[in-house]
C-alpha cells in the first residue's frame, strides 16, 4: 500500500503497478486534474497546501477501511502539493480488487472520503482574484 503527499509529478501507472497482483482482476484509477475554470471564472493555476504529517495517516485510514469493506482490495493514493498548472495531475486514487464492481466502488469511495477528511487545501488563482476553497465555498485569500 502506498500513500504519498509529494511536490513532484504523480505517476499513475507506477501506482497501478504497486497494487496489481495475480488475484486482482480489476484496477480502477481516479485521476484528478487541474481545470481551467471554477465558479464561472477562468483559473490560471492552483496552490495546494497539506498538513503532510496528518494527511498521510488519514490516507492510510481510508486505505484500511477500503480493505475492510472490500476484501482483497489493494490501495495506492497520492496527492500533489505546491503550484500546479492547468492540466497537471493533483491527485490519484488507485484500487485493485478481484472484480470490477468492487474496484470501481472502492475507488469512488476512496476519492470521496479523501476530499472530506484529508487535510489538504486548494488555493485558487482565478481571473477575479485568489481564493481558498473550503469544502463548497470560496473565501478570499490574502
Amino acid at each position: 500500500m502506498r500513500y504519498d503527499v509529494t511536490t513532484g509529478p504523480i505517476d499513475a501507472r507506477e501506482m497501478e503497478a504497486a497494487v496489481t497482483h495475480p488475484g486482482a482482476g480489476a484496477i480502477c484509477t481516479f485521476t484528478g486534474i487541474v481545470r481551467d475554470n471554477s465558479r464561472g471564472q477562468t483559473v490560471t493555476h492552483l496552490d495546494y497546501e497539506a498538513y503532510a504529517e496528518m494527511a498521510v495517516p488519514q490516507m492510510r485510514h481510508i486505505g484500511q477501511e477500503i480493505k475492510d469493506r472490500w476484501p482483497g482490495a489493494r490501495v495506492a493514493m497520492a496527492h500533489r502539493t505546491g503550484k500546479l498548472e492547468v492540466g497537471e495531475v493533483s491527485v490519484v486514487v488507485c484500487v485493485s480488487a478481484p472484480h470490477r464492481e468492487e474496484a470501481i466502488a472502492a475507488c469512488k469511495w476512496g476519492i470521496d472520503t479523501l476530499k472530506e477528511s484529508v487535510p489538504i487545501w486548494k488555493k485558487e488563482h482565478a481571473a477575479d482574484g485568489t481564493y481558498w476553497i473550503e469544502g463548497d465555498t470560496a473565501k478570499p485569500a490574502s
Partner: peptide, 27 residues
Amino acid sequence: NQEFSDWDATVSQGDEVAFIPPVSGGC
C-alpha cells in the same frame, strides 16, 4: 497529535495541536 479531536478534548504537555479549516483536496 495528527488526529481529529473534539473541542472539549484536553491537551497535554508537548502535544502538537492543529486547527484545520474545511479541507479541499482532490480536484
